[in-house]
Design a protein around this nucleic acid. Sequence first.
DNA 1: ACGACAGTAGACAGATCTGTCTGCTATCGT
DNA 2: ACGATAGCAGACAGATCTGTCTACTGTCGT
Lengths: 195, 195
Amino acid sequence: MSAASPAVRKQSARDRLLAAADELFYAEGVHTVGIDRVIEQAGVAKASLYSCFGNKDGLIRAYLQGRHESRQKRILTGLERFDTPRDRLVGVFDVLIDYVSAPAYRGCAFYNASAESEKGGVAEEMSDANRAWTQELLVGLAREAGAPDPATLAAQLVILYDGASAGARLDRHPEAAVTARAMAAILVDAAITAL
Amino acid sequence: MSAASPAVRKQSARDRLLAAADELFYAEGVHTVGIDRVIEQAGVAKASLYSCFGNKDGLIRAYLQGRHESRQKRILTGLERFDTPRDRLVGVFDVLIDYVSAPAYRGCAFYNASAESEKGGVAEEMSDANRAWTQELLVGLAREAGAPDPATLAAQLVILYDGASAGARLDRHPEAAVTARAMAAILVDAAITAL
DNA sequence: ACGACAGTAGACAGATCTGTCTGCTATCGT
DNA sequence: ACGATAGCAGACAGATCTGTCTACTGTCGT
């Protein structure tokens, strides 16, 4: 055939770059970490970075896109072990507890990136998409669980979720997520039994 | 007398510097905004900045200290209009609604600063102090309101507070704070009537 | 065999940022 | 009148950061 398949090698420069960016940007901030640090850790030439991503903003966008996708996968996979819609709804917080308990946890990658970027930039755009997905997920689960007002229940759960995420970050301890899970369970049970 | 009083003038370079830093650091981030921007907006010589605050870290510390103090004053003043301990406890969220409704609201200054600073830096230290104060305030108010377990109630309210603060920031809309206030009212009433 | 391609190594330009230093000016207490 | 203090203006050094460019090197499909 005329055109070769779009290059899915084994360990491309792009992949190494993305892995290094994911680690460094999350741990120290997208603005604090310079290009040189990323290419050094990736073991890649500077020209490769610019040829792959155009500029630093492109790398930041790819980093956040990767975070978005891996978060989707982590949550959906983590929910598979729950049998009922009610358990899946509360289970979102079980997945969160696991996530914030990792030693490398440093808060929400989207909030962090958006805190050090200018208004209306890449970070805000990616954060909006990530947030919309979460909200839709919770509304859908709330509906399946039989909540009379799925949108309101989802909005309340989002607040618990955000609070747990921020609290665990600032306290450098996962306790807030455990508390939030307990609150979420009470909230969900009250909503679906009050039918 | 031998030593003059520690100089409390009318509109010192220090005050203008702090006002400029407060505005710029909060709006765009402590790391993004350079020294030159701050001294330009303050209308102050660069040497004055370094003579007043030592270095940029000193200015960031003073900025966060100022935020801490004005937040304490804002909350304590805002709670004065409430008559009962129960209303004061929920009233913390009324004050929050006002705060996040301002057009210039950009999230928690401490979280933002800490997101773009390195681990164990000034921002983390100031954030810890600010957080400890909030937690003690809520525990005290919960005790006065007659909650059987003030510490647990306070921990739950902190999650709602953090969630409202982060949500209003990321959504660029104060709705999350209104929802959090409603949740807080239910939580508080359930706790103090279940006696 | 060979051209296309992906990547490497590193110099370089231009901007920006922190922090220092020199020299000048105005005000105020004594 | 005068010295101390606070502040202004801006040059400067040194580091760092983004982004470009040149030249070289493997590898793979045809």
